[in-house]
């Protein structure tokens, strides 16, 4: 019972943190307006310009930060449980990079201009290919090393193809946008982006949430899980499609943002215990907090310079990743 209460307290704390960072994101920006004035302009539309800024620029940015962060945290937690690999996350497995490649192909060929849904669908297709490849490489009992190496290869290849596609574009600005697709940004995203990517993220979340119980059983091993009636094919379908849909939707509008999915589940696991079904909601909230915080920071550190989110997440995430490798080295050998 006390464990239950502890879990509820962690979730509540995370929810409060996420909410405060969401409000911080709404009230941070180059336009000099007070805290109250900004929020008032958001709720009461008096046809003034501040309302326009709050509703069309800040709100989509904050909501996308919340949703994309939740997507990354949740998919990281699911992938770590599903692949039983502490180093799994969409960025390291090449899923984000492949989704980026899909989005790049859709945008720069002009497909997304004629068929708007082409953008998230292409990113989703890229993500599906990456998950399938990683799954195939991992095999039945894929080791930690195999999965991560497959991810490195897929990331490198997708990154190279993204650069190639952008360099070959006849638009001279395209080549400069490689950095957006590799590092991610939420600057000046609009409601259009939200409507385009939101449904894919929500659909992905639903599928990933359905994995909560199967993942709990999966901690006993795949054989044990199927012996007590877990349909492994269904689990695989949900994990792959759910990750691809949510990460694909997120990446299509914000580029590839790394390390959130890696760090968040690891930080929260000691707090909620190693039960996957508890880790999933906590990781979603934690991911949202981390990404919102990063997005507030990029605006405070370098206002007007469009610092990329991936820069901040990597500054925190890469040393963490090294530490994790250090710690798991013995298990890997």
């Amino acid at each position: 019972m006390s464990e239950q209460a502890r879990y509820a307290a962690v979730l509540l704390a995370l929810a409060v943190l996420t909410l405060s960072l969401f409000i911080a994101s709404l009230t941070t920006g180059p336009a000099e307006a007070g805290f109250r004035q900004s929020l008032a302009a958001l709720f009461v539309d008096e046809g003034d310009l501040m309302s326009l800024v709050m509703r069309e620029i800040r709100l989509p940015r904050a909501v996308l930060g919340l949703m994309i962060g939740a997507t990354l945290g949740l998919s990281g937690a699911v992938l770590q449980g599903y692949l039983r690999n502490p180093l799994a996350e969409p960025g390291l497995l090449g899923i984000s990079a492949s989704a980026s490649l899909g989005a790049v192909l859709a945008i720069y060929t002009g497909l997304s201009a004629t068929f708007a849904l082409g953008l998230p669908l292409a990113a989703l297709a890229g993500a599906v290919i990456a998950v399938l490849l990683v799954r195939a490489m991992a095999g039945e009992r894929g080791g930690t090393l195999t999965i991560i190496l497959a991810g490195v290869a897929i990331s490198a290849f997708a990154g190279a193809m993204t650069s190639l596609a952008l360099n070959l574009s006849s638009n001279p600005f395209a080549a400069l946008e490689i950095v957006f697709w590799m590092l991610g940004s939420l600057a000046d995203r609009s409601m259009t982006h939200l409507w385009l990517s939101g449904p894919f993220m929500v659909a992905g979340w639903v599928m990933l949430a359905m994995l909560a119980r199967p993942l709990d059983v999966l901690t006993l091993g795949a054989d044990a899980a199927s012996s007590i009636g877990i349909d492994m094919r269904r689990v695989q379908f949900l994990a792959i499609t759910g990750t691809a849909a949510s990460v694909g939707g997120a990446t299509a509008v914000a580029g590839a943002i790394g390390f959130v999915g890696l760090v968040v589940p690891h930080l929260l696991r000691p707090l909620v215990g190693s039960v996957p079904s508890r880790l999933l909601p906590a990781s979603a909230l934690g991911g949202a907090s981390v990404l919102l915080a990063a997005d507030v920071l990029v605006r405070l550190i370098a206002p007007g310079r469009d610092l990329k989110l991936g820069v901040l997440t990597a500054i925190v995430g890469a040393p963490f990743f090294l530490w994790l490798i250090w710690r798991t080295r013995r298990q890997m050998l």
């Binding site: 310009l49 326009l52 800024v53 069309e56 620029i57 945008i107 720069y108 060929t109 002009g110 997304s112 201009a113 574009s169 006849s170 638009n171 001279p172 600005f173 395209a174 400069l176 946008e177 957006f180 000046d188 609009s190 409601m191 259009t192």
Partner: peptide
């Protein structure tokens, strides 16, 4: 006068930009 789109020109379609 570019044949292919790029994110560089995406802000010209932003609802807030079109409003003003």
């Amino acid at each position: 006068h570019y044949e292919k789109p790029a994110l560089a020109q995406e802000n010209f379609q932003h609802p807030a930009f079109r409003a003003i």
